[in-house]
Nucleic acid binder design. Structure first.
Length: 298
DNA sequence: TTGCAGGGGTCAA
DNA sequence: TTGACCCCTGCA
C-alpha cells in the first residue's frame, strides 16, 4: 500500500477493525486530551470512542500498536491515515524542538501527541463555541448541536451523532438553536453557517492560503477572533506555523520563557521567533504540559 | 441553601 | 482598553 510506505506502519485486519503495528509517537490520551478536539468519550478500557468525518471509531494505543475498531482498510486509507497524520515523522519534530531544555521537558509529558487533521467546517463551529467556555461545556454544546442537526449512528448499543454537514443544515430551522446551550455564541454559529452556505466563506479556498491571509479571512466570521482563527488553522488547515494563545498558553509562555507578564502579541512574536514553522507542535506539547501540571495557574 | 465569580475570547464602545 | 456576554460549576 503506497500510502504506508513513508511510515513503516503494518496494518492487520482484526475482528471489527484494524491493528496497526510500528506506529511511533502515538498516544491516544495525549492526542485526544490535548485540547484539539472535543468529540470523544473515554471508555473504561482507556480506549477512546471518537466521532469524526461522519464515522464512529474506537481507538486504543498500546506502545507502538494502535487498535482501531469499527473501521476497515478502505476508511483507514481514505480517512484515518490522514486524520491521525500518520505520514509525519514526529520524532524529528520532537528532536528539533528538544534543542530547548524547557521544550524537552514538556515533550516528555505529551510524547504521543499528534495534531489531527480535522474537518475545517466542524473545527470552525467547534472553536466558535469554545470562546470563553469550558471544555465539558464545549463538548456538550457540540454534541447537542450534532443531535439536533446531525445523523445518528449506532455503535455498541449507544447512539452517536455525526457533526452536521452544510447539506444537513440546508433545511434546518434555527429557531431552537438556543437549546444547544451555546449561549451568546448561537448567533455567531447561525451567521457562520449562513456565510459558508452561501459561499461568502469558502473554507477550502482559505485552507490553500498562507496562514496570515487565511487568518484574516476567517476573522470575517463573527465569533472568530485571533485565537479561534489560529485554532482552525492549526487543527484543520495544517498551518503549523501558528501558535494559538489562550489563557493557558499565555500563562505557560510567560512563566517558562518570557518570565514576565506579556501581551498576546508579544507571545505570538516570541513563538514565531523561537519555534518558527514548528510553532503549532510546540504549542500542543506546552498546552498539554501546562494543563497536566496546572502550571501558571494562579 | 443561596449567591457570586469566572471560564481554552470576541465584540463594541 | 474595558465590560458584557450564556451557561454552568465550584466554593463560600
Amino acid at each position: 500500500m503506497d500510502y504506508l510506505k513513508q511510515s513503516n506502519i503494518v496494518v492487520e485486519v482484526i475482528r471489527d477493525g484494524l491493528l496497526l503495528k510500528n506506529v511511533y509517537d502515538f498516544n491516544a490520551k495525549h492526542i485526544f486530551e490535548c485540547g484539539q478536539c472535543f468529540r470523544w468519550d473515554k471508555e473504561e478500557d482507556n480506549s477512546y470512542t471518537v466521532i469524526a468525518f461522519g464515522k464512529v471509531i474506537n481507538v486504543k494505543s498500546n506502545g507502538n500498536e494502535v487498535r482501531i475498531l469499527n473501521t476497515d482498510i478502505r476508511d483507514f486509507k481514505e480517512i484515518w491515515f490522514e486524520y491521525f497524520d500518520l505520514g509525519r515523522d514526529y520524532s524529528r519534530i520532537k528532536t528539533a524542538l528538544s534543542a530547548d531544555d524547557t521544550m524537552k521537558l514538556a515533550i516528555k509529558y505529551g510524547e504521543g501527541i499528534r495534531i489531527l487533521k480535522q474537518d475545517p467546517w466542524e473545527t470552525l463551529i467547534s472553536f466558535i463555541i469554545s470562546a470563553n467556555n469550558r471544555i465539558p461545556m464545549i463538548a456538550r454544546s457540540i454534541n447537542l448541536f450534532s443531535q439536533m442537526y446531525g445523523r445518528a449512528i449506532n455503535y455498541n448499543d449507544k447512539v452517536y451523532y455525526t457533526f452536521p454537514t452544510i447539506k444537513d443544515l440546508s433545511e434546518a430551522d434555527f429557531s431552537d438553536i438556543k437549546s444547544c446551550k451555546a449561549g451568546f455564541r448561537c448567533k455567531y454559529i447561525i451567521k457562520a453557517i449562513e456565510m459558508v452556505r452561501n459561499g461568502e466563506m469558502n473554507l477550502e479556498k482559505i485552507k490553500s492560503m498562507k496562514a496570515i491571509e487565511a487568518e484574516k479571512e476567517l476573522k470575517k466570521i463573527p465569533g472568530v477572533g485571533i485565537k479561534v482563527a489560529n485554532c482552525i488553522l492549526l487543527f484543520s488547515m495544517q498551518k503549523y506555523d501558528t501558535y494559538p494563545v489562550d489563557v493557558w498558553m499565555k500563562r505557560i509562555t510567560e512563566e517558562l520563557f518570557l518570565k514576565r507578564k506579556s501581551k498576546v502579541g508579544e507571545i505570538s512574536d516570541f513563538a514565531q521567533k523561537r519555534f518558527g514553522d514548528l510553532s503549532g507542535f510546540a504549542q500542543e506539547y506546552l498546552f498539554y504540559y501546562a494543563r497536566e501540571l496546572k502550571i501558571g495557574k494562579s
